[in-house]
Design a protein around this nucleic acid. Structure first.
Lengths: 106, 106
DNA sequence: ACTTACCGTAAGTCATCACTTACGATTCGT
DNA sequence: ACGAATCGTAAGTGATGACTTACGGTAAGT
């Protein structure tokens, strides 16, 4: 899954809450939904989106399904932002030098 | 602006196209909208969202307005993903050791 | 075997948001 | 000073998506 799906998935506040709940480790759906204001099926739908985006991986364990953060999916997004960050800094530096040159010509 | 706004802003494909157009350096609105399928006011609205999210900075230059990527805004998002990445790796490692311990007890 | 627990999916509703056209404001050129 | 250019904003419309309830399917407990 490309990084675009990861960004779209993380755009929803509820899904970010789910991600935060999984920071410490894998959890079954019931544990994730417990304490949240929305219904459990709604959580399931969010988990589906996050999994499709490559941000979560599922491991069925008997009756339950354990969801955990997939480091690879997070890394894809990280790399995209790194290139964006590099380009932004380079453009910023170039704009600064151009501005200095203008000042010299004045 | 917190990182949440940045994620929400980058969730839209059109806004990512705009960001990509600004990777090489600042551009006025007309140049950004040129070649895009949507109208120029639509581009203006997207630029507003990106600016509010802290991802773009504007420098009015006479008649036109130059938009450029704001490195600080990108950095906020980068830091969020870094902590998420760290936690995910730590949880993954812990799960691996626990699994190994289970095997030993068997 | 039968009940209970855990979970995903289907169908439908409601709000959010991206886009359009129309308009007003500011600045440049002549 | 006047017309053209550049851009932001307002109002309205259509589509996407987040949520609900209802249902089915599989595994665990007794």
């Amino acid at each position: 899954m490309p990084y675009q799906d990861a960004i779209t998935a993380l755009a929803d506040p509820t899904r970010r809450v789910i991600i935060d709940r999984l920071r410490a480790g894998a959890l079954p759906v019931g544990a994730i939904a417990a304490g949240m204001t929305i219904s459990r099926p709604a959580v399931s739908q969010h988990l589906r989106v996050l999994s499709d985006a490559g941000l979560l991986k599922v491991t069925p364990q008997g009756n339950r399904r354990l969801y955990a953060i997939a480091p690879e999916g997070v890394d894809e997004l990280r790399r995209y932002l790194d290139t964006l960050w590099d380009d932004a800094l380079a453009a910023f530096a170039q704009a600064a030098t151009e501005k200095a040159r203008e000042k010299d010509n004045a």
